[in-house]
Amino acid sequence: GPMASDKRPRTAFTAEQLQRLKAEFQTNRYLTEQRRQSLAQELGLNESQIKIWFQNKRAK
């Protein structure tokens, strides 16, 4: 629909990254900035991508 703007492409996470994020989520529903930074480095992701993933996951 018209609401779907092309400005922010959805990140396609790899299965491996998703597995890691899910495991982290089961341990911590809320990430500290430090955890998020190390996860971002570990997974080669953007911190904001991880932050948003957690927000979306909590919203469900």
Rank of each mutant, 00 (worst) to 15 (best):
1 G>V: 03
1 G>T: 03
2 P>R: 14
2 P>A: 15
3 M>E: 15
3 M>L: 13
3 M>N: 15
4 A>P: 15
4 A>E: 15
4 A>K: 04
4 A>N: 13
5 S>P: 15
5 S>R: 02
5 S>N: 09
6 D>H: 02
6 D>I: 04
6 D>Y: 00
6 D>N: 04
7 K>T: 14
7 K>F: 11
7 K>N: 15
7 K>E: 15
7 K>V: 14
7 K>P: 15
8 R>M: 15
8 R>I: 15
8 R>Y: 15
8 R>V: 15
9 P>A: 07
9 P>S: 07
9 P>F: 06
9 P>Y: 05
10 R>W: 08
10 R>H: 13
10 R>A: 12
11 T>D: 10
11 T>I: 10
11 T>E: 13
12 A>E: 13
12 A>N: 12
12 A>Y: 11
12 A>R: 11
13 F>E: 02
13 F>I: 07
13 F>R: 02
13 F>S: 02
14 T>R: 04
14 T>V: 02
14 T>E: 02
14 T>A: 03
15 A>Y: 09
15 A>E: 11
15 A>F: 09
15 A>P: 12
15 A>K: 10
15 A>T: 13
16 E>S: 08
16 E>M: 09
16 E>V: 07
16 E>K: 07
16 E>P: 05
17 Q>H: 04
17 Q>L: 04
18 L>M: 07
18 L>Q: 07
18 L>D: 05
18 L>F: 06
19 Q>N: 11
19 Q>R: 10
19 Q>M: 10
19 Q>E: 11
19 Q>D: 12
20 R>T: 05
20 R>V: 07
20 R>H: 05
21 L>Y: 00
21 L>M: 04
22 K>C: 13
22 K>E: 14
22 K>N: 13
22 K>G: 09
22 K>Y: 12
23 A>C: 10
23 A>N: 09
24 E>A: 06
24 E>Q: 02
24 E>P: 00
24 E>R: 01
24 E>Y: 03
24 E>D: 02
24 E>K: 01
25 F>A: 02
25 F>T: 02
25 F>M: 03
26 Q>M: 10
26 Q>D: 07
26 Q>G: 06
26 Q>E: 13
26 Q>S: 08
27 T>F: 10
27 T>W: 06
28 N>S: 08
28 N>E: 04
28 N>F: 03
29 R>S: 08
29 R>A: 10
30 Y>P: 04
30 Y>L: 08
30 Y>H: 11
31 L>Y: 01
31 L>H: 02
31 L>A: 04
32 T>N: 12
33 E>H: 11
33 E>P: 13
33 E>W: 06
33 E>F: 06
33 E>V: 13
34 Q>I: 11
34 Q>K: 11
34 Q>P: 08
35 R>P: 02
35 R>G: 06
35 R>Y: 07
35 R>E: 13
35 R>N: 07
35 R>M: 11
36 R>F: 10
36 R>M: 13
37 Q>S: 10
37 Q>C: 06
37 Q>G: 07
38 S>C: 09
39 L>S: 00
39 L>M: 04
39 L>F: 03
39 L>H: 00
40 A>R: 01
40 A>P: 01
40 A>H: 02
40 A>W: 01
40 A>S: 08
40 A>Q: 03
41 Q>W: 06
41 Q>L: 11
41 Q>S: 08
41 Q>E: 11
41 Q>A: 12
41 Q>N: 12
42 E>P: 00
42 E>C: 04
43 L>Q: 00
43 L>S: 02
43 L>Y: 02
44 G>Y: 04
44 G>N: 10
45 L>Q: 01
45 L>D: 00
45 L>W: 01
45 L>G: 01
45 L>A: 04
45 L>Y: 01
46 N>A: 12
46 N>G: 10
46 N>M: 09
47 E>V: 10
47 E>Y: 03
47 E>R: 03
47 E>M: 05
48 S>G: 10
48 S>D: 12
48 S>N: 07
48 S>T: 12
48 S>L: 12
48 S>V: 12
48 S>K: 08
49 Q>E: 09
49 Q>S: 09
49 Q>C: 11
49 Q>D: 15
49 Q>N: 05
49 Q>Y: 13
49 Q>P: 02
50 I>F: 01
50 I>Q: 00
50 I>D: 00
50 I>H: 00
51 K>S: 12
51 K>H: 13
51 K>A: 14
52 I>R: 10
52 I>Q: 15
52 I>M: 12
52 I>K: 14
52 I>G: 09
52 I>S: 10
52 I>N: 11
53 W>Q: 00
53 W>S: 01
53 W>F: 09
53 W>Y: 09
54 F>H: 01
54 F>E: 02
54 F>D: 01
54 F>V: 02
54 F>G: 01
54 F>I: 02
55 Q>K: 13
55 Q>N: 07
55 Q>A: 14
55 Q>R: 11
56 N>A: 14
56 N>C: 13
56 N>V: 14
56 N>S: 10
57 K>Y: 12
57 K>M: 14
57 K>W: 09
57 K>S: 13
58 R>K: 04
58 R>T: 09
59 A>D: 07
59 A>L: 12
59 A>F: 08
59 A>S: 12
59 A>H: 12
60 K>N: 07
